[in-house]
Design a protein around this nucleic acid. Structure first.
Lengths: 217, 217
DNA sequence: ACACTATTCCAATGATGATTGGAGAACCAT
DNA sequence: ATGGTTCTCCAATCATCATTGGAATAGTGT
């Protein structure tokens, strides 16, 4: 047998990444950061956390080297250390969803009634043939940090007001952050209630990027 | 914005999986369980943990549904809930290794001086052309639970005694549990010290299985 | 029924993590 | 320099987790 202390040290090092992923708040911050770099203040507001609490969690993520920071004046921007981190995050959620019945329950409670989904392939095909309008319903800054080519930014809060911009005779496909983002679900429910034909991308920008599909900036 | 409580509940559910992965001891248990089902007692001994401590950690893994149990008489066998869990575990280690310099340090300290490695493809090619003898240096019960086709079980403890079984004019390729398993490193160092030509598989059975290469039982 | 084995449950202790407000540090603008 | 902004550090409190020995449970063999 190899040296016990050295083995413990190695596995404790692996556990640092596990520990970073061991809090719902941190996972929510990661979910936001995965959409593009954000400041501490913006992240705290989006995740509805106190500034110091958010900062403490971000420090934890930073010490696990899952995120890196960039300073610009008084602001500090956090972004993912790499796409391997996004892949790990996505796999964690998939495993949780596949293994834990409570995740399915919580997901259904959060996302609401299921709406019709289209796959990434179907979306690409619809865009190519001009048969659908693709809208990005995330906040504008996330769209700016990278979006599906051809998609129009229509943040969910503006959707009802900007309905006229969307062709009434065409299907609308909405997408947002990822498989557990509520925005596209809300968008489809809103559009359907207003008499439009709408569907949502089954997952979102996170999975799109991980599938190495083209991203526009 | 969606319902805050529901969103917190969802992310806290995801975090259950993270929490399960947030301990070096549990990761070591997972590493062992990934090689095939084992009893609590066997796992406690292999990981050098107290029985109740091991049981408590196994309960944690079980409550996260990363492992499942099977009873046989008085014994309870733990095994992985699925290969998705193995993939998550492997990705966690890869990300940790790529991101945390301390992991590299701890790995080098544990595995010792680096020995020459062959890729999975090279191993397959060498076996096919009969140019190498492949030995599985894990404990016999792990070999029994599944091994590389054509490999011979020579647990590390028996290697020195069973040297005569290995053709002296052929290269030996040793493999063990995975990329962070010390056994194949020790085997190569031992064989080289005894004048044999030996190399090790770059990773191990965990990665072999995840690559969906054939497994013999 | 009884002893025996394997494992979990329980309770107690110590260790680690989360959250918060307030102070401090880095930077910018005037 | 001074004041304003953004964020981190510090210290205190509370909550959660790890570890342990001993009791309890489930099953086997006599």
């Amino acid at each position: 047998m190899g040296d016990r202390d050295a083995k413990n040290a190695l596995f404790d090092q692996f556990a640092r990444v596990g520990k970073a992923l061991a809090s719902g708040k941190r996972l929510e911050l990661l979910d936001l950061i995965a959409q593009g770099e954000r400041t501490v203040d913006a992240l705290a507001k989006s995740a509805e956390l106190g500034l110091t609490t958010a900062s403490a969690h971000l420090q934890t993520l930073k010490q696990a080297n899952l995120v890196v920071t960039r300073r610009e004046g008084t602001k500090i921007f956090y972004r993912l250390a790499g796409d391997d981190v996004a892949a790990l995050f996505a796999l964690l959620r998939t495993v949780a969803d596949d293994r834990l019945p409570d995740v399915r329950t919580a997901r259904e409670a959060y996302l609401g009634d299921d709406t019709e989904a289209v796959s990434r392939e179907e979306l690409l095909e619809r865009v190519r043939s001009g048969r659908a309008t693709v809208i990005d319903v995330r906040p504008a800054e996330e769209y700016a940090a990278g979006h599906i080519p051809g998609a129009v930014s229509v943040p969910l809060d503006e959707l009802a007001d900007r309905l006229a911009e969307l062709p009434a005779d065409q299907e609308v496909v909405a997408y947002c952050r990822g498989a557990y983002c509520v925005l596209s679900h809300d968008a489809v429910r809103l559009l359907t209630a207003l008499g439009r034909t709408a569907r949502r991308l089954a997952d979102g920008m996170l999975e799109w990027r991980l599938a190495e599909l083209p991203v526009a900036v």
